[in-house]
């Protein structure tokens, strides 16, 4: 590698959209009985993928190969699993397991050595049971037969890996692999997210997909909230000014009395 490549490009911030999360489905009873571990009710897959879904694919995201900047993804499962640290060095970065309970999975992304960045670590709550309207999941879980019919449960979080002042070589590498832009229109259901309870209706509609509509929709949601807050504040300001006038009047009265 030439020396000029090891120069950081100042003032450049470049990000790559990813998603992480899991899908889970109920294991049919007959299969469960034949397996070694009868207590495991669900089969789940936890994964880190590119945000865009490939057309006609039956998984969420993963259209782009993200191995050009990722060296390894480690999933740290619950301690009760045999060798809970699963290191995945090649795409697809995912772990498929069976189990009966939800827990926090620690995900650690190690970048290629050329980029000179430290690994990042974050958590994902493994979601096995269907979403409920309030998104808490605290409600009673449906019996396995119902859950089986309802289809797989999806829990995905969109995020962006942000690189600041990347090395020239790394920047070249990244720009050589532009991510496929998110689809402009909504083609498939919206992935459910607790921050957007309105998307609950889509949870039963099949394999979700991330799209730009979701970004705009969220921007609008925040914008509306802000407008409401500001309208509220205007109202309170009027109240305040009225009250201040009253106070001034009272003070005058006090002085006169």
């Amino acid at each position: 590698m030439s020396n000029s490549d090891r120069v950081r490009v100042r003032g450049v911030t470049i990000h790559r959209p990813i998603i992480y999360g899991n899908t889970a489905e109920v294991i049919p009873l007959e299969e469960r009985q034949s397996s070694s571990n009868t207590a495991h009710t669900h089969r789940w897959t936890v994964a880190v993928r590119s945000a865009v879904s490939a057309p006609d694919s039956d998984i969420v995201g993963g259209a782009d190969d993200i191995s050009y900047f990722i060296k390894r993804v480690s999933f740290k499962l619950h301690d009760t699993y045999p060798n809970p640290n699963r290191n995945i060095d090649k795409p697809p970065y995912e772990v498929t397991e069976t189990g009966w309970g939800e827990f926090e999975i620690q995900i650690r992304i190690v970048f290629i050595s050329d980029c000179g960045e430290k690994p990042i670590t974050f958590y994902h709550h493994l979601k096995l049971h269907p979403w409920t309207v309030d998104g808490s999941g605290e409600a009673e879980n449906p019996p396995p037969e119902v859950a089986l019919k309802a289809g797989p449960v999806h829990s995905w979080q969109y995020d962006e890996i942000v690189f600041n002042d990347p090395f020239q070589s790394f920047l070249n590498l990244l720009t050589a692999h532009p991510p496929t832009p998110l689809p402009k229109a909504k083609r498939r259901p919206v992935p459910f997210h607790t921050a957007n309870p309105a998307s609950f209706a889509d949870t039963k509609a099949g394999i979700p997909e991330f799209s730009q509509v979701m970004i705009q929709e969220e921007a609008e949601r925040l914008e509306n909230a802000r407008k409401q807050v500001i309208a509220e504040q205007e109202k309170w300001r009027t109240v305040l000014i009225e009250k201040e006038n009253e106070l001034a009047r009272l003070k005058k009265e006090m002085a006169e009395a």
Partner: peptide, 22 residues
């Protein structure tokens, strides 16, 4: 207002600054 202050569905740069404005 039904807005989560800890999580965003799509944490893009624009949405983060929207949240800040909020």
């Amino acid at each position: 207002l039904d807005v989560s202050h800890t999580r965003l569905v799509m944490p893009t740069r624009e949405n983060c600054s929207q949240l800040e404005g909020l």
